[in-house]
Design a protein around this nucleic acid. Structure first.
Length: 866
RNA sequence: GCCGAGGUGGCGGAACUGGUAGACGCGCACGACUUAAAAUCGUGUAGAGUUAAACCUCUGUGAGGGUUCGAGUCCCUCCCCCGGCACCA
C-alpha cells in the first residue's frame, strides 16, 4: 500500500488539467449557465491565506455545479491599479507597471497550486489599456449625461500620499493605506453623481418586493449589507424652511424632518463654514466669530466626529424671523451643525432634539415644549387646557418622538404627522418652505492625484473657451462647461470616444512633488484640442480604483472586445452573476459603486438588468493563530505555501472549508489542519486497501456484499447532505457529512468489502473538496476510463432510500426524555402511544399518576403529561 | 447612541418548520503498536451525583422572566462580545 503523498499527486494532476484545458467554459452554451464570481484580487505579490480562503473555498461550489451539468463560468483576473504599486515603486525605484505585471505573473503561478478551477482565458487586468479604455468610455458617457462633473469640495486629503481619499478610505480619521492623519482641504475634482441614483440604490423592504434583477427573480444579498447601504444612503424626508433675516433681504434655508416642531424653534444654528455666517455676523461679534470659525476648522476629523460633543458655539449677533409666528430668534454658529448635510443650517428645537437641548442648556437659551407625548398621563387630563408656555429647564432631556402639538397656535391638538403636512403646505403658499428629501450619501469623488490609475479622458482648452465661452458664458456652468485651471478659465473638452484610450504614459516622474505625477509628462499633457485644434492640456489626474472594479464582471465575458464593453449577446445570456463572493468590508464601497454603475449602464441601454448579482455571499477572515489579524509585523502569518508543502493543497482547502461557517472570522488552528490531513490519509488508506483486492487490470469492482438498507441510507443521506449544503454555502457541515460517512464505511470495511457504488460515489462527492486526491483514486481504482472525475456526473440521491424502516421514538414524561424506543417507521399515533405506555421505564415513572394528556409526533416522539 | 450579526463543552463549531443539545474536528486522558518517541490505530471525553459499571438521577445553550405538553430555537427585559455607522437636523 502506497502512502498518501500530496506533493507527488497534486502537481501531477494540476499539469494534466492544465494540459487538457479542463475548465474551459463554452459561453455559447448558456442554457444552464452558472456565473460564479469572486472579487478579483490586487496583485500585492504573494498569495496569502486570505486568498486561499477567498478563492479555494468557492471553488468547491464551482466544481460541484460543473459536475451537476452547469456550464460554469468562474473567471479570474487582477484589480491592478492602485497605490501600493506606486508606493513600492517610489520606495524601490521599480516602475509601477513592471512591479504590477511581475506580481500578476507570480500570483498566477501560486494560484495554480491551489487546484482551483478558475478560468484564466477570460482574464481581466485593469491596468491594461484595453480595459481602462472602457473606464474612460463610461466616464465620458456619464459626462455627456451630466453625471460626471467637476466640483469643489472639502475633501479628505492624505498629506503623506498627497492624495484625495474617499470617505470609505478613511478609517478613524486616518488614511487606510499609510495610516497618516487625514486633513480637510478644498479641492477641485471630478465627481460622479451617485446621488442621482440614491433613491434607486435604496434596497426596498422585503414586504414591498426587492428591485428585480431579471424577470420575476429576486436577489439574495446579505441583510447586513442591505441595511448598511440603506443607512449609508440615509434618506430622510422633510422640508426646507426659509427663515428671513430682520432688516435684510437674506434668507436662511434650513432642512428639517420635523416641521411640526417649528413653534419650538428658539434659535438657528449655522455650520461654521456656512457662507452666510460672515454676512450675518454683526460688527461687535466679528472677532469672536472669526476666532470660533478658525478653531472649528482646525479640529481634525477625529476630534470633530468622535471627540468632544460639548456643543460649543457662538452668537453671530443677528436674529432671524420664525416664519410661523414672526418671533425673532438668535442666530448662532456651532460646529455640531455640519456643512455637508442638508443646508448646513438648522432650526434648533431644544425641547425636541437632544443636541439642540444640550446646546440650549449650555448657552442658556429658551427651551419651549411644543409636542406632548401621546398617552402621557401627566398631561392627558389637560388635553383641552393647554398650558401656554412651559417653564424652561423643567425638562431633563428632549422628547424626540411624535405626539400632539401644544403651544403651536392654530396647529394645537394636531398630531405630529398632520401638523407637519399642514405647516409645510401653509408655508409653501407663501414661498417659505418646500418639501425636501435629503440623502446622507454624497457624490463620488473619483479624481486621484496619482500616476497609477486610469487617466481622466478630459482636455482643457483655453481657445475653445475664449472663442465660444464669451458667447454662452451666461449659461455656462463651472465644472460642466469650463474649469479654472491655474487661475484661468478653460473649456472642458471630453476626448472623443474614437480616440480612446487615453493611454497612461510610461515615462513620468511619479515621486511626490506636490503636483500630479502626470503633469510631469509634458509631451503627454500638451495636446491639440480635439474640438478646435488649438493648444490644450490634458487632465493630469487619474480615476479612483473603485471605477475599475465597478463593472469588471461584464468585461470578463469578453475581455478582448475592442468595440464594446462586451458583446451584447453574452451580456444578455450570462448576466447577472449567479453568485458573488466577497468581503463584507465592501458593503459601502465596491458593491455600492458597482450597483450604481449597473443602473447607469442599464439606463444607457448596455445591460438589461438593474442588479448585477443574484446572490452575494460574504467570506470571513482567517486570523493568525494568536487571534489577531495576520500581519508580517506581528509575525503571526500562516503561509499557505508552507502548509501546502506539509499537508497538500487538498488538506488546506478542506480545512478552510471545514473551520466553520464561511462568513466566520476565526483564528487559524494549526492542529485543525492536521485533523483534516488525517482524514484524507484515512480516505486514501481505506480505498487503497480495497483496491488491493481487485484483480489486476479489472475495470470494475465486484460487489461482494449486497448493500443493506442502512448502507444505502448512509450513502444517499450523505449525497443529499453534501449537495444541499454546498448549494447553501455550508461547506463545513458538508465536510462533516463526508467524514461521518467515511467513519461508517471504515467500520463496515471490517466486516465486508466496500461496494464499487460506495467508493465511486464517495470519490465524486469528495472531488470538489479534494480535487487531486479524488482524481488520483478515481484513476487508480479504475473508475476513470481516461476521463477526469471532475467531468463525471454528480451523484444523485433517492429520497426513498434515505427514509429508514426503523425510527427512534423519544418518549417523554412532562417534556423530559425518559425512554428511547426503536420502532417501525410510520406507525400511527395510537400505536406509538400504546408502545410508549408499554415501556417498563415509562410505567415506573408514571406509577400511579393519572395521564392528563399525551402528544404524539409521528416518527419522532411521544410526550405524556401527568 | 443607531444599524447588523452573535453569546452552546477546554477549543472551532453542529442542531430541519419548537421535538434526543453538543454532529464533525481539534485538544486531552487511557490503551495498542514501539527499546523509546513520533506517526498510526482503538476507547473515553458537558458538569455534578449515585454506582461494580452505567444505557441511573440531577443540572446545563450569557442573565432574568414569559408562551408551550415540550424552548438553544418563539416573545419581553437586561448584560456582554464582534462588525459597520455616528452631532444626519
Amino acid at each position: 500500500m502506497s502512502k498518501y503523498e500530496p506533493s507527488e499527486i497534486e502537481p501531477k494532476w494540476q499539469a494534466v488539467w492544465r494540459k487538457n484545458n479542463l475548465y474551459k467554459v463554452d459561453l455559447s452554451k448558456s442554457a444552464r449557465k452558472f456565473y460564479l464570481l469572486v472579487e478579483f484580487t490586487y496583485p500585492s505579490g504573494d498569495l496569502h491565506m486570505g486568498h486561499w480562503f477567498t478563492f479555494a473555498v468557492p471553488d468547491i461550489l464551482a466544481r460541484m455545479k460543473r459536475m451537476q451539468g452547469f456550464e460554469v463560468f468562474a473567471p479570474n483576473g487582477f484589480d491592478a491599479f492602485g497605490l501600493p504599486a506606486e508606493n513600492a515603486a517610489i520606495k524601490r525605484g521599480i516602475h509601477p507597471q513592471d512591479w504590477t505585471l511581475s506580481h500578476v505573473k507570480r500570483m498566477k503561478e501560486q494560484f495554480a497550486t491551489m487546484g482551483a478551477s478558475y478560468d484564466w482565458t477570460h482574464e481581466v487586468i485593469t491596468c491594461l489599456p484595453n480595459y481602462y479604455k472602457w473606464n474612460q468610455w463610461i466616464f465620458i458617457k456619464m459626462y455627456e449625461l451630466g453625471l460626471a462633473y467637476r466640483g469643489k469640495s472639502l475633501s479628505n486629503w492624505c498629506p503623506l500620499d498627497r492624495c484625495v481619499l474617499a470617505n470609505e478610505n478613511v478609517e478613524n480619521g486616518k488614511c487606510w493605506r499609510c495610516g497618516s492623519e487625514v486633513v480637510q482641504k478644498e479641492i477641485d475634482q471630478w465627481f460622479l453623481k451617485i446621488t442621482d441614483y440614491a433613491e434607486r440604490l435604496i434596497w426596498p423592504d422585503k414586504s414591498e418586493g426587492p428591485e428585480r434583477s431579471r424577470g420575476k427573480e429576486t436577489v439574495d444579498w446579505p441583510k447586513s449589507l442591505i441595511e448598511g447601504q440603506n443607512n449609508w444612503i440615509g434618506k430622510s424626508e422633510g422640508a426646507t424652511i426659509e427663515f428671513r433675516i430682520k432688516n435684510a433681504e437674506l434668507r436662511i434655508p434650513v432642512f428639517t424632518t420635523r416641521p411640526d416642531t417649528l413653534f419650538g424653534a428658539t434659535f438657528l444654528v449655522l455650520a461654521p463654514e456656512h457662507p452666510l455666517v460672515k454676512k450675518l455676523t454683526t460688527k461687535e461679534y466679528q472677532n469672536l466669530v472669526k476666532e470660533y470659525q478658525k478653531r472649528a476648522s482646525q479640529k481634525s476629523e477625529v476630534e470633530r466626529k468622535v471627540g468632544d460633543k460639548d456643543k460649543s458655539g457662538i452668537w453671530t449677533g443677528s436674529y432671524a424671523i420664525n416664519p410661523v409666528n414672526n418671533e425673532s430668534i438668535p442666530i448662532y454658529t456651532a460646529d455640531y451643525v455640519l456643512m455637508g448635510y442638508g443646508t448646513g443650517a438648522i432650526m434648533a428645537v431644544p425641547a425636541h432634539d437632544q443636541r439642540d437641548f444640550e446646546f440650549a442648556k449650555k448657552h442658556n437659551l429658551e427651551i419651549r415644549q411644543v409636542i406632548r407625548q401621546l398617552g402621557s398621563k401627566a398631561n392627558g387630563q389637560n388635553a383641552t387646557k393647554i398650558p401656554t408656555i412651559q417653564v424652561p429647564n423643567n425638562l431633563s432631556e428632549a422628547f424626540e418622538g411624535p405626539g400632539i402639538l401644544i403651544n403651536s397656535g392654530k396647529y394645537n391638538n394636531l398630531h405630529s404627522k398632520e401638523a407637519s403636512a399642514k405647516i409645510i403646505s401653509d408655508l409653501e403658499k407663501v414661498d417659505l418652505a418646500v418639501k425636501t428629501t435629503n440623502y446622507h450619501i454624497h457624490d463620488w469623488s473619483v479624481s486621484r492625484q496619482r500616476y497609477w490609475g486610469t487617466p481622466i479622458p478630459i482636455i482643457y482648452c483655453r481657445k475653445c473657451w475664449s472663442d465660444k465661452g464669451k458667447v454662452i458664458s451666461d449659461k455656462s456652468i463651472e465644472g460642466r462647461d469650463y474649469a479654472i485651471i491655474d487661475g484661468e478659465k478653460r473649456a472642458i473638452v471630453p476626448v472623443p470616444l474614437d480616440q480612446l484610450p487615453v493611454e497612461l504614459p510610461y515615462e513620468v516622474d511619479y515621486t511626490p512633488k506636490g503636483r500630479a505625477p502626470l503633469a510631469t509628462a509634458e509631451d503627454w499633457v500638451n495636446v491639440k484640442c480635439p474640438s478646435c485644434g488649438g493648444e490644450a492640456k490634458r487632465d493630469t489626474e487619474t480615476m479612483d480604483g473603485f471605477v475599475d472594479s465597478s463593472w469588471y464582471f461584464i468585461r470578463y465575458l469578453d475581455p478582448q472586445n475592442d468595440k464594446k464593453l462586451a458583446d451584447t449577446k453574452l451580456i444578455y445570456e450570462w448576466l447577472p452573476v449567479d453568485i458573488y463572493f466577497g468581503g463584507a468590508e465592501h458593503t459601502l464601497g465596491h458593491t455600492m459603486y458597482s450597483r450604481f454603475f449597473t443602473k447607469f449602464l442599464h439606463d444607457i441601454g448596455i445591460v438589461p438588468f438593474v442588479e448585477y448579482a443574484q446572490k452575494r455571499v460574504h467570506h470571513g477572515v482567517i486570523l493568525g493563530p494568536d487571534g489577531s489579524r495576520m500581519s508580517k509585523s506581528k509575525g503571526n502569518v500562516v503561509n499557505p505555501d508552507v502548509e501546502v508543502a506539509k499537508f497538500g493543497a487538498d488538506a488546506v482547502r478542506i480545512y478552510l472549508a471545514f473551520l466553520g461557517p464561511y462568513d466566520l472570522v476565526t483564528p487559524w488552528n494549526p492542529g485543525g489542519i492536521n485533523g483534516v490531513y488525517r482524514y484524507l490519509q484515512r480516505v486514501w488508506a481505506l480505498f487503497q486497501v480495497e483496491s488491493g483486492t481487485l484483480p489486476a487490470g479489472r475495470q470494475e469492482w465486484k460487489v461482494e456484499s449486497e448493500l443493506s438498507a442502512e448502507d444505502l441510507r448512509q450513502m444517499h443521506k450523505t449525497i443529499k447532505k453534501v449537495s444541499v449544503d454546498v448549494e447553501n454555502i455550508k461547506f463545513n457541515t458538508a465536510v462533516a457529512a463526508l467524514m461521518e460517512w467515511l467513519n461508517y464505511l471504515s467500520d463496515k470495511s471490517k466486516e465486508r468489502q466496500l461496494a464499487a457504488e460506495e467508493v465511486n460515489n464517495y470519490l465524486r462527492l469528495l472531488a470538489p473538496f479534494a480535487p487531486h486526491l479524488a482524481e488520483e483514486l478515481w484513476d487508480k481504482l479504475g473508475f476513470s476510463n481516461g476521463k477526469s472525475i471532475h467531468l463525471a456526473n454528480w451523484p444523485q440521491f433517492d429520497p426513498k432510500l434515505i427514509q429508514s424502516e426503523k425510527v427512534l421514538i423519544i418518549v417523554q414524561i412532562n417534556g423530559k426524555v425518559r425512554d428511547k424506543i426503536e420502532v417501525e417507521a410510520d406507525l400511527g399515533e395510537d400505536e406509538l402511544k400504546r408502545i410508549a405506555l408499554d415501556s417498563e421505564k415509562i410505567k415506573i415513572v408514571i406509577g400511579k399518576s393519572k395521564i392528563q394528556k399525551s402528544i404524539v409526533v409521528p416518527n419522532r416522539l411521544v410526550n405524556i403529561v401527568i
